[in-house]
Design a binder for these strands. Structure first.
Lengths: 107, 107
DNA sequence: ACAATATATCAAGATATATTGATTTAATGA
DNA sequence: TCATTAAATCAATATATCTTGATATATTGT
């Protein structure tokens, strides 16, 4: 698929917009933190993170069994404009819950 | 639906990207010109034009039985960035066929 | 090597979106 | 008013995408 269409397609989902907004606000997060904070089951989150990654919005860094996702930097022009739009959306962002640091995730 | 999501959703389709690219290149066009030039059946075209209109990308002007569509101007920041991206895509744009001017459309 | 845990992938069903052909609406001209 | 034509909408089907629960993979510590 064309790159632009893939980029747009990745933006075309409320869940992914929320994830992007979350990562933009709180910075690097491991999947289990996202799970507890956003109250999503693991497979769903994993799927959307993959789509965001393949669309060039996020990067992953593995540390042990954990996978830390973050907004890619630098983003190209169109993607940063999209992120800027997302930044100004009226989204009620749930508070960050750092399960990964306080102990094991045990989800 | 949220405005941003609606905007993105409108971009998330090859047909609509082609239509936007076409209007950007050739300017105002009536539906029958789009039909012949892009070789699309009328109902399909009409549907996509409606989506583009409701997403704020195009405007319509009626002249008699004809409906002329054009890129809205000015576009807001995000939409113009999107259009700019589309402008640089590797799309083989079919030539403009002005059915509406040479006579009746008779499609 | 084995157990435990985090993450990724798979399969099935549910939901949304696109395509087509048929029908409806609206404007023009005889 | 009636016939004609452009464009919009509708109904049915096809296709794609999302969600969930189950399973697979990979890493750590014992």
């Amino acid at each position: 698929m064309d790159v632009f269409l893939k980029t747009v397609s990745a933006l075309n989902d409320e869940t992914r917009i929320l994830i992007l907004r979350f990562l933009d606000e709180y910075g690097d997060s491991c999947v289990c933190d996202l799970q507890t904070s956003l109250d999503m089951i693991q497979s769903r989150l994993s799927r959307h993170l993959k789509i965001l990654k393949e669309a060039g919005f996020v990067r992953v860094e593995r540390r042990g069994t954990w996978a830390y996702y973050a907004i890619r930097s630098p983003l190209d022009r169109f993607r940063s404009e999209a992120l800027e739009e997302i930044r100004h959306l009226d989204i009620t962002l749930p508070p960050l819950q750092k399960t990964s640091q306080t102990g094991a995730c045990k989800l």
